[in-house]
Design a protein around this nucleic acid. Sequence first.
DNA 1: GCCCAGGTATAAA
DNA 2: TTTATACATGGG
Length: 277
Amino acid sequence: MKIIKTKNGISLKHITNFDLSQTFDCGQCFRWEKINDKHHGIVHDKSIVMFQDENEILIENISLSEFKNFWFDYFDLGTDYKKIGEDLAETSSTLAKAHEQCKGIRILKQDPWETLCSFIISQNNNIPRIKKIISSLCFHFGNKVGKDFSFPSAEKISTLSLEDLSPIKSGFRAKYILDAARKVANKQINFETLSNTDVVSARNSLMEIKGVGPKVADCVLLYGLHKLEAFPIDVWMKRVMETFFYKKSPQMFGSYAGVAQQYLYHYSRTNPEILKI
DNA sequence: GCCCAGGTATAAA
DNA sequence: TTTATACATGGG
């Protein structure tokens, strides 16, 4: 990978296994939108625009130090996805097909609180409405960032009541959002601590939050705390198989997670027959 | 109206 | 321990 400072931001060249559309559209994040070939995202307190063609990936209006200090890790650019993907593809024909279609997905290192809150909202919900509710949450309770709004802090949300949250129309999830915000705000859930504890303990801690089960907890571990070690190959394969038998065992499907989840979900969208077996 | 959406809490078997 | 049902809301 070659990092080039341009007058407009940062340009990445000779980069493999990084496709912006696949990465932003695979269900791991909810605050990126593609508008006229450009990807617009709100990350922390910054509104950001990206572009990709066959030659390069462009991140507009950031400095080299911002790239090195934040975006490099956000996009997990220090991880060799090419090797991981090829190793996965050798594991089974199912993963090989999935990998072929989804090799451009990178696991984003997102803010843990935003990830937690977002995946609480995601339960028994569809992606357009998940995005709508999150957008509304930011509009009502976040800070203004250009013409967008940042994701509100757990401290801010923890001061709210169920009634305060009613405008975002999150339904039965509102009480879960408040419980999560309070436990994060009073440090009963401490992401700094969780990132240094073993995966099983971290998962159990997260599940102390009302409305957080294995699926939400795993998404926080993976996307928020970037605990990739939570998903070794045998776990990935198990999740693949669970997904594979979704129609026969919906409750098992409910506990799938991780990279296999992303690969299979993405793969199954273009090849729905995989779920019919 | 009915069914479903990237789940989870709860009660009941 | 495993299995059924409700849950708020909105779109198809």
